[in-house]
């Protein structure tokens, strides 16, 4: 009863019999363990070796242009002046694509994981995954032939109404602009971001969802308090995978964009990206020009590396709160 003195309320701790200790770690090496640890070590080393090989190739091949006389480089102002507009173009196209794709992807993932009836959700997920199987050259053709002409009126509207924003200074007549390319890139990276987000949203512990609901959360509030914070690192990871794909995407951009010098105007011709620049010029390049293109590839490699490091930093910064502990 509730009047029982406190001393009688603590159940006596019964010491459990000590379990038999297995031999100390490292003494017995089972063949299965050896094979698996060896195989995973080899795989780990292999990926490092491939990466190191690529980096070395890029470095060695791009040395000539880094040491060349600035006057001999395309544009006659040195490699940095040549590659800088390309870097900005690449990052601009990819960031635009990411900005357009991420909210949509998160929305689809939430719908599939928390709103749609199970069967509908599964089929939508399947369709999205199918999108990832479309070759990029097909996206490129579609963007060039179908999407670009249809975007011309939209660009004209943007120019007329938001022309004072430098991004929308002058509309294109063909629609083959960096904005079109970004839109196509967004469609291309949508599946990967959606797939990763959907998986993490589905993994939200039931306990946390119920905790939110029991506090009187509506469905959306439950998603905001339990699902989104839990899935945030995963969404960031998926977005970075998508960004990586957008940064490296070659064919779609090369086909759609009518390339040119750098301009802030994203709805007109101009701009280029590193992969497109390489793809368009590689067949006829030789000597120093070839080295130039490879050096541009090296720069892209570094950009991708930096992007991934930043993503990792963002995820790690709040790892204390991730629920992994």
């Amino acid at each position: 009863m509730s009047t029982t003195p406190p001393s009688a309320r603590t159940p006596a701790a019964v010491p459990a019999p000590a379990p038999d200790r297995s031999p100390r770690r490292g003494q017995v090496r089972r063949p299965g363990d050896l094979v698996f640890s060896g195989a995973s070590l080899a795989s780990g080393l292999l990926i490092m070796a491939i990466l190191a090989g690529v980096a070395t190739f890029l470095l060695v091949q791009s040395l000539p242009v880094l040491t060349a006389d600035p006057g001999e480089v395309t544009g006659e102002a040195g490699f940095a002046a040549y590659v800088l507009p390309l870097i900005v173009g690449t990052v601009l196209a990819s960031v635009l694509a990411m900005a357009m794709a991420t909210p949509v992807a998160v929305g689809i993932a939430l719908f599939v994981s928390h709103y749609a009836p199970r069967r509908l959700g599964a089929s939508i997920g399947f369709v999205i995954d199918l999108l990832a199987a479309v070759p990029s050259v097909v996206f490129g053709m579609w963007g060039w032939q179908v999407l670009a002409p249809r975007l011309v009126p939209a660009f004209a509207w943007l120019e007329a109404n938001l022309g004072w924003v430098p991004l929308f200074a002058e509309g294109s007549n063909t629609g083959r602009t960096i904005a079109t390319a970004s839109l196509v890139l967004a469609v291309m990276i949508l599946p990967i971001i959606t797939a990763v987000s959907r998986e993490v949203f589905l993994q939200t512990p039931r306990l946390h969802e119920e905790a939110a609901l029991a506090l009187g959360a509506t469905k959306w509030e439950m998603i905001r308090t339990a699902v989104l914070p839990f899935g945030k690192p995963g969404v960031i990871g998926g977005t970075m995978l998508g960004l990586g794909r957008a940064l490296g995407e070659t064919m779609a951009v090369a086909i759609i964009l009518s390339t040119g010098g750098f301009t802030w105007n994203i709805i007109g011709p101009g701009n280029s990206t590193i992969p497109a620049e390489i793809a368009l010029n590689f067949p006829e390049a030789a000597g120093l020009r070839l080295s130039e293109l490879i050096a541009a590839g090296l720069v892209l490699f570094v950009i991708t590396l930096v992007v991934n490091l930043v993503a990792r930093y963002i995820v790690e910064k709040r790892s204390e709160f991730s629920g992994a502990n």
């Binding site: 512990p205 306990l207 946390h208 119920e210 905790a211 939110a212 029991a214 308090t225 339990a226 914070p229 839990f230 945030k232 709040r318 709160f321 991730s322 629920g323 992994a324």
Partner: peptide, 9 residues
Amino acid sequence: FQRPNPFPT
């Protein structure tokens, strides 16, 4: 609830 479930984030 049965298992403590503070929001981890």
